[in-house]
Design a protein around this nucleic acid. Structure first.
Lengths: 352, 352
DNA sequence: TTGTATGCGTTATCAG
DNA sequence: CTGATAACGCATACAA
């Protein structure tokens, strides 16, 4: 380690400056030429046994690490991909999985957070990032208006990519939501309300249409759909929008955050959850499992989505064929403590 | 835009390949030499007026964007900094603020998530990242064993950096915790329990010692301290560890996630919150504000910490002086619905 | 099996 | 004010 430091120190004027060892330093120390070292580093088998030993020793002694910037310039690929987000919170699970996948495929991940959530602005941002030439591709978790950038690839997560999903996959959220409403109906609920989230998210659209379709098919009364950002406050406002004598017995929220707001506002209005009002969320985030009452929700496999999105991106960068779709864990509805048969109907049906 | 595309397309063999325009392309089109263009791009004032106009036109027509990789190789600085994390969840607010600050200072942010939470492993990771030469510096939100890397700078967030905090700042978490226990004592609580989080986090240590000091000073009985990861499940286990006839009237948790688990387990044990058991958290995450009951917690200004950490990092990279400490929003204790005077004591004191 | 020469796109030095 | 020329560190045809 001391020899290593020593090798890095060069004297410039009156002050010493660390200089990172290069291929040439290694070559000089090993007594070979620089591209023999280059071959060694790339694992080329056409390197003599004792040359190999000398190079290895030199690399160790100097603590040499290849300069990835220089390599990137020469190979025109940096080994880093960007993930573009409309904000930090929200797609954490997807992003986390995508990061892990990228790292296991040998890519670094650069996170870019757009200040503006507008798809057009984010698309421009993606193009800019690509044009700067520091990343090989961009993965977006939200809808973008472009698919390929100049000198790079842009891929969207399955979750939000209309074009790429098979017909069955497209319908997944919608069908799951229909299923959820079916189950609520089977419990006896006849009067529902939907808190739908921002409608420029495709998943929000799907859940909404699944809700409406199921209501229609089952002859269930929907007393409204409330749009808004993925935020508890939206759920609060949704509940506030309900009249005191609302016949609604269950609120179907398009996300857990929304649902938490719904429960909060309902309780503060004097409506017991789930006795007076059942509530469902979507995502199965960790915290709501420990809520009181524990939220009924939909467990979604975001990890697979994030992993697969990244895999597709990297395949595209490498010019490989589109990877096979990954088998996602089945989406399942977790009925916990916020859903029970409606009291109102039971009373009406039995005694009143 | 069409001219732009046209300029990028070159024919290689039988297939057309997009080629990004370079400085030379711009120079050729403008009829000047390439480093006159370079000067123009860097805002050098020593560029003639009409040359400037011609270059500007050429840049626009070609849609030229400087190649940051090439620039990085030449200037030995990439304009990207890495944030190294022991996992995705946890320091979101800090990271979010740090990202925003970096972007406003003209830096890109690369996120690196260590699979291993071990400080030594993370330190090695940081050194590796720096050695690759693609980032100018590394910001860590957890304790690291190194401070400077080779050819780069490593800075830790205030929150976790023992060395850098002033004496007063060091004591902040501890004092706040003492304050919290004071307030609980003032409510009448005499029997407490602490869920402390992982003790290799400095902040967890501080909160713990603040708790113990206050108990000691006030003559309050602490019925135990329970360590574990920042996870609701730790809170659950902590409550399970309590005997049925525990005299504890309040549980002080070192984080909101922990506290949520505590509330959940208490309720499932038949202990009403807050009537039988008061609970406090730490962080003021959005969701717990909407919990039922809404969690009493400590509001911490993580944004300033993240922003300032990034500012210090970038100052160090640029060789500037350590920036002045930023005024953080004061930490405040938010008593909400999970804290009330203890029923047991009140009954004993008044009638029994 | 190994060495020589060249270029990636930019910035920097030094002439003109 | 502008232009030729030389790096930056690496990879890769091509020659030895």
């Amino acid at each position: 380690m001391s020899a290593w430091i020593g090798a890095w120190v060069s004297i410039v004027g009156h002050m010493s400056v660390k200089r990172r060892p290069t291929l040439h330093d290694v070559a000089a120390l090993a007594g070979v030429s620089h591209q023999t070292v280059s071959r060694f580093l790339r694992g080329d088998p056409t390197v003599g046994a004792d040359t190999l030993g000398r190079i290895k020793a030199a690399v160790d002694e100097l603590g040499y690490r290849p300069n990835l910037t220089a390599r990137a310039m020469r190979t025109r690929s940096s080994g880093v991909v960007a993930i573009i987000l409309p904000g930090w919170t929200g797609p954490e699970r997807t992003v986390n999985a995508a990061c892990a996948e990228a790292q296991s495929l040998g890519y670094q991940v650069e996170i870019v957070i757009g200040v503006d959530e507008d798809p057009v602005a984010l698309s421009r941002l993606a193009t800019d990032i690509l044009a700067r030439g520091q990343v090989d591709g961009v993965l977006s978790v939200t809808p973008l208006t472009i698919k390929t950038g100049d000198g790079g690839v842009v891929v969207q997560t399955d979750e939000f990519d209309h074009r790429l999903r098979s017909v069955e996959a497209v319908a997944a959220d919608e069908i799951t939501m229909e299923d959820l409403v079916d189950r609520l109906a089977a419990m006896g609920h006849r009067d529902l309300f939907h808190v739908a989230g921002p409608q420029d998210w495709w998943s929000a659209q799907l859940r909404r249409s699944g809700y409406l379709k199921a209501c229609d098919r089952l002859g269930i009364r929907s007393h409204g759909v409330f749009d808004g950002p993925w935020d508890p406050e939206t759920g609060v406002e949704a509940v506030r929008s309900l009249p005191d004598d609302t016949p609604v017995t269950a609120v179907v929220a398009a996300s857990d955050h929304l649902a938490v707001g719904v429960v909060h506002a309902a309780v503060h209005r004097g409506w017991a959850v789930p006795e007076d009002l059942s509530v469902t969320g979507w995502d199965d985030i960790t915290l709501v499992r420990y809520g009181t009452p524990a939220l009924s929700t939909v467990r979604v496999d975001r990890e697979t989505s994030g992993r697969h999105g990244m895999r597709r991106l990297i395949a595209a960068i490498r010019g490989e064929a589109e990877p096979d779709p990954m088998a996602a864990a089945p989406t399942e509805i977790a009925f916990r403590e916020t859903t029970v048969p409606p009291r109102k109907n039971a009373v009406i049906g039995q005694e009143d």
